[in-house]
Design a protein around this nucleic acid. Structure first.
Lengths: 132, 132
DNA sequence: ATAAGTGCAAATCGTTTGCGTAGGC
DNA sequence: GCCTACGCAAACGATTTGCACTTAT
C-alpha cells in the first residue's frame, strides 16, 4: 500500500506508515480508533492528519468507508468484499459474505438499474440478540 | 396520529399539529425540511421542538428515521413499507417496494438470525445515472 | 395548578478547513 | 529548496441538552 503511494508521487511519513499499519491490522476502524492506534507510538498525530490521509486513500481507491447507522463512519480496505448487517437496536455490525447478496443484486439491477456497491454495502435490521 | 398522542396523555400543541401535517404530506423529510415546512405558518418553532417531537413519535412507534449515507437523517411514517436505495455517488434515495427484499430477508434470517428491518431498510450502491 | 411542551442559546459529536511550519523528496 | 503533509485551533453541520417560561390539560 505504501508502494502504491510512492508510485503516485505521494509522500511516506511516519504518521502514514502508522495509519497504514493500523488499517491492515483490523478490518473495521473508525477515524477515532485509528487515531488511538496511531497515537500509541506517535502521540501527537492529529485527527485531521488521519482524516486527510483516509480521504487520499479513498481517492486512490485503496480504502472505503460507510456510514452505518448513527455513529461515526467505518473505514476498511477496498478489497475486503463483504456486506454489513447493522442492528438498529444495539448498533452492532456483522459482516456477511458478498455471495449472500447476489440474488438481491440481480433483482435491483433489473428492477431499478441500481448497482449494489461492489464489495461494500449495508442493510439495517435487528440482530439475533436484539430480537427479544 | 394526534388522537394517538392524546390517548397517551401527550399534549396537542400548534407546533405538533403542524409537524404532524408536514409528516403526513410528504413521505421523506429531514429535520430541516420539517422545520422549514412548519415555519411557513408558525415562524418561531425551534428546531429543538421538531427534534423532540420526532423522538417522541419514534418512541411511540409512529415514525422511523434512517441515516442514509452522509447527509442528515430522513424521517417517515412507520407504516410506510419500503426499502431505500442510496446512491453513494450523488446521495440520491430511491424507494423500492418491500417485496424486492423478500429473498434477501429469508436468506439473512437463515444465515445469520438477522431480521431485516420490517418496512424500512437501506442498501448502498450506485444509481443508474451515476454509473457513467 | 400542575407538569408537559416550548424557544433560545450553549454544548456536543464527528468531521472539515485555514494557516503557518516541518520534513520527505 | 520545493512543495506536500503536518499539527493546531477554529469552523462546521446535525443534533442534544439546560433552563426559564408558556400553555394545554
Amino acid at each position: 500500500m505504501l508502494a502504491e503511494l510512492r508510485s503516485r508521487g505521494m509522500r511516506i511519513t511516519p504518521a502514514r506508515r502508522a495509519i497504514a499499519t493500523a488499517l491492515l491490522a483490523r478490518s473495521h476502524h473508525t477515524a477515532d480508533s485509528l487515531v488511538a492506534a496511531v497515537r500509541r507510538r506517535h502521540p501527537d498525530v492529529a485527527p485531521s492528519t488521519v482524516y486527510r490521509f483516509l480521504e487520499a486513500l479513498e481517492e486512490i481507491g485503496l480504502v472505503r468507508h460507510s456510514h452505518l447507522g448513527h455513529g461515526p463512519a467505518v473505514y476498511h480496505l477496498a478489497d475486503e468484499r463483504h456486506g454489513h448487517l447493522v442492528c438498529e437496536s444495539c448498533g452492532g455490525v456483522t459482516e456477511v459474505p458478498e455471495a449472500a447478496f447476489s440474488g438481491l443484486r440481480r433483482k435491483l439491477r433489473d428492477l431499478e438499474r441500481f448497482e449494489l456497491a461492489p464489495g461494500h454495502f449495508a442493510v439495517t435490521g435487528l440482530c439475533g440478540t436484539c430480537q427479544s
